[in-house]
């Protein structure tokens, strides 16, 4: 197995610029193509420990980021190409790495219906998975990054991939996306965290990505049984509370914020039912990251023991 950091820089850049660099992420292979320095820098920093595939292979997603022509080149913008098509707006070069990460998520969001896909962060400890669905702004990324830095294995910060008719999740470990104040919170939380350069003034504000494959088995894509579902809600100044959540409510919330629950129809319902039977559900409201971490670790100790 060849890791990205084992490739000599010339070969890495040559592949990235020409035929594309093939990186294995969980169950998928991405083919990435770009000559942008931001992307070269981002990938070499955050994907150093990912497997690259050098022989002929099938790639699930073909992504390229490049200017469509000299006019875009002069304006300092690029297009996001997916299978040769451009489904997104043009992107400023300084945002190209952040958009590459979003684009890599997006490919999974619109296809991959061999899984029930929940919009959630997923982490593992003692071979049991914790799923954290959350609305944007609920603080799930910050909490997810902090847990990743505290001994949990990150399975995904965006997609809980539940194979149909199971109560398990398939890991798809990639860098964690951090926005605005989360960037400083995480830097302060652990000064050894490896962060990409910050992309300023994106449509989501300031964005940075954190290296997240910190566990020895980070790239193991074996399905993990689920045990816990926590709905985090960060609120400045809020009093800490941790309450058991009705599974029926959790079902509806997770279904509503799923990428393909509705699309899967009855299979989606059956899979969600199976998933809900295998997890305990909690609402977590917090204003201090330390308190939230303690609560999650406490639940892990209690629930995973059972």
């Amino acid at each position: 197995m060849v890791l990205l950091k084992d490739l000599n820089p010339d070969e890495f850049q040559h592949r990235l610029k020409h035929q594309g660099l093939r990186i294995r992420c969980g169950p998928y292979v991405y083919n990435l193509q770009s000559a942008e320095q931001k992307i070269i820098d981002g990938l070499s920093l955050l994907y150093a420990d990912f497997e690259v595939i050098l022989e002929e292979t099938f790639a699930d997603f073909h992504i390229a980021m490049r200017p469509s022509g000299w006019s875009q080149q002069l304006r300092g913008v690029v297009e996001f190409y997916w299978d040769g098509r451009c489904p997104m707006n043009i992107i400023e070069v300084r945002h190209s790495y952040a958009f590459l990460e979003w684009g890599m998520n997006w490919c999974v969001s619109i296809g991959s219906d061999e899984y029930l896909k929940l919009h959630a962060a997923v982490l593992e400890k003692n071979n049991k998975a914790l799923i954290m669905p959350g609305l944007p702004g609920a603080g799930k990324s910050t909490l997810c990054a902090a847990l990743t830095l505290s001994g949990w294995r990150l399975l995904s910060d965006e997609h809980a991939l539940v194979p149909l008719h199971t109560g398990t999740v398939v890991p798809l470990c990639r860098p964690v996306s951090l926005k605005n104040e989360s960037i400083d919170i995480i830097r302060e939380f652990d000064s050894s965290a490896v962060l990409s350069q910050v992309a300023e003034e994106t449509h989501k504000g300031r964005v940075a990505h954190m290296k997240a494959d910190l566990a020895p088995n980070s790239h193991d894509a074996t399905p993990v049984p689920t045990a816990l579902m926590i709905f985090p809600q960060y609120e400045a100044g809020a009093e800490f509370s941790l309450r058991r959540k009705l599974k029926t409510e959790a079902f509806m919330f997770a279904g509503l914020h799923s990428f393909n629950y509705k699309l899967l129809g009855e299979t989606g319902f059956d899979t969600m039912t199976q998933l809900m039977r295998s997890v305990d559900c909690f609402d977590l409201r917090y204003s201090s990251l330390e308190e939230a971490l303690a609560a999650v670790n406490h639940l892990e100790a209690e629930v995973f023991k059972e």
């Binding site: 489904p87 997006w106 619109i110 990428f259």
Partner: peptide, 14 residues
């Protein structure tokens, strides 16, 4: 009208 929000889960339904 081409703007697409890649993080918007609603987009996945399109």
């Amino acid at each position: 009208t081409k703007a697409v929000d890649v993080e918007d889960p609603e987009y996945a339904e399109d």
